[in-house]
C-alpha cells in the first residue's frame, strides 16, 4: 500500500494553509481531518491515518485512511438517505445545490489557501474555486429541468397515455478525478450531476488532495444537504474501490479517477455482478462540465402506460 510521502512539519507563517495559523507568534490549532459519513465526521473505524504533505513535501495533516468497512458504512448511509433525497422536490434539490455554492463562495479564501498549499498557483486556485462554484450553480439550476429535457411523452399507436421520465439510479460510488487542478472542481464535476437527480453517493476522495475533499465536506455539513446524501472517504482507491465495485447495494460506479487501467477493468468486471451502471475513467476538461450525459448516466428512464377512457 502506497502512502503519501511525509516530512517533518516546518512552521511557515506566510502560508494560509488550514493547519497553520496566520497570526505570527500564535500557536495554531490544526484541524483533524476525518471522514464524512452519514452527515457526521467520524474517524476511520480502522483507526488508521496517513500523513499528508504539502507541495514542498512538508507535513500538512494526518488524514484518515478509510477501510473497506468504512466504505460499507458509507453505502449504508447513502442507501438510508436515498429515498428521502429522491423524494424531495426537484426545486428543493436545486435550492440545496445552490446553497452549497453559497457556502462554498463564503469560504473561498480557505479553499484557495488550501489549494495553494497543495500545489496550485494562487491564480489557478482562484480559478478552480470559481469553477467549482459555477458547477454547483449550473446543476442547481438544472435540478428541475433535466427531466424535461430527457423525459418525453410518447405518441403510441393505441388509446394510451404514455410518458417516460428519468429517476435516480440509487446509490452511486464515485472515484474522484486525480487530475491536478481538479481537486475541488473535480468533486463538483462528479458529485453534482449524480446527486442532482436524487442519487446519493460515496465519494473516494482524490489521493492527490484528500484535504480539500474533507474541507468540502464541511461545506456540505453546513449547507442543507441531508446527511448521507454525500459521503466522502479519504484513503486509497485501490483499497476502497474494489469493495464498492463489489457491493451489491451499490447501483452504479463512476471510475472517473481510476488511473490504473488494469484496476479500472477489474472494477468494471466486478461491478457486472449486479449489473452496476459503470462509467469508465476519463480525463476532465472544462468543456465536460455541464455535459447532460453526466446526469443521464445515473438515471433510469421509467416509462408509464395508462389507457385513455371514460
Amino acid at each position: 500500500m502506497a502512502t503519501a510521502p511525509t516530512k517533518k512539519t516546518a512552521a511557515k507563517p506566510t502560508t494560509k494553509a488550514a493547519t497553520k495559523s496566520a497570526a505570527a507568534g500564535r500557536l495554531g490549532v490544526p484541524k483533524t481531518y476525518k471522514l464524512y459519513l452519514g452527515g457526521k465526521f467520524p474517524r476511520s473505524e480502522s483507526g488508521r491515518s496517513f500523513a499528508f504533505a504539502d507541495a514542498n513535501g512538508e507535513f500538512l495533516a494526518n488524514v484518515s485512511q478509510a477501510s473497506r468497512k468504512d466504505a460499507r458504512d458509507s453505502v449504508q448511509a447513502a442507501r438510508k438517505a436515498q429515498g428521502g433525497w429522491a423524494k424531495a422536490t426537484a426545486y428543493n434539490r436545486g435550492q440545496v445545490l445552490y446553497r452549497i455554492a453559497e457556502v462554498l463562495d463564503g469560504r473561498r479564501d480557505q479553499f484557495v489557501a488550501e489549494l495553494v498549499a497543495t500545489g496550485s498557483t494562487a491564480r489557478a486556485a482562484e480559478a478552480e474555486v470559481e469553477a467549482a462554484i459555477a458547477t454547483w450553480i449550473f446543476h442547481a439550476g438544472f435540478a428541475d429541468k433535466y427531466s424535461q429535457v430527457i423525459g418525453s411523452t410518447n405518441p403510441v399507436a393505441a388509446p394510451y397515455f404514455n410518458f417516460s421520465l428519468p429517476e435516480a439510479t440509487g446509490v452511486v460510488a464515485l472515484v474522484a478525478p486525480q487530475q491536478a487542478g481538479w481537486s475541488l472542481r473535480g468533486i463538483a464535476a462528479v458529485v453534482a450531476p449524480a446527486i442532482v437527480s436524487g442519487n446519493t453517493v460515496v465519494l473516494v476522495a482524490s489521493e492527490l488532495n484528500p484535504l480539500t475533499a474533507i474541507s468540502f465536506a464541511e461545506v456540505l455539513a453546513t449547507s442543507d444537504v441531508p446527511g448521507g446524501v454525500v459521503n466522502i472517504l479519504t484513503g486509497f482507491v485501490e483499497e476502497l474501490a474494489p469493495g464498492l465495485a463489489a457491493h451489491m447495494d451499490v447501483n452504479a460506479i463512476d471510475l472517473a479517477g481510476v488511473e490504473d487501467t488494469t484496476l479500472a477493468r477489474d472494477l468494471e468486471a466486478t461491478g457486472a455482478e449486479n449489473l452496476k451502471r459503470v462509467t469508465r475513467p476519463r480525463t476532465f476538461a472544462p468543456r465536460h462540465v455541464g455535459e447532460l450525459n453526466e446526469i443521464v448516466r445515473f438515471t433510469e428512464l421509467k416509462t408509464v402506460w395508462h389507457p385513455i377512457g371514460v
Binding site: 393505441a158 388509446p159 394510451y160 389507457p307 385513455i308 377512457g309 371514460v310
Partner: peptide, 10 residues
C-alpha cells in the same frame, strides 16, 4: 364493486 376500464373492455 367492479369498475370498468373502457380501453381494456374494448
Amino acid at each position: 364493486s367492479v369498475r370498468i376500464d373502457q380501453v381494456g373492455v374494448e
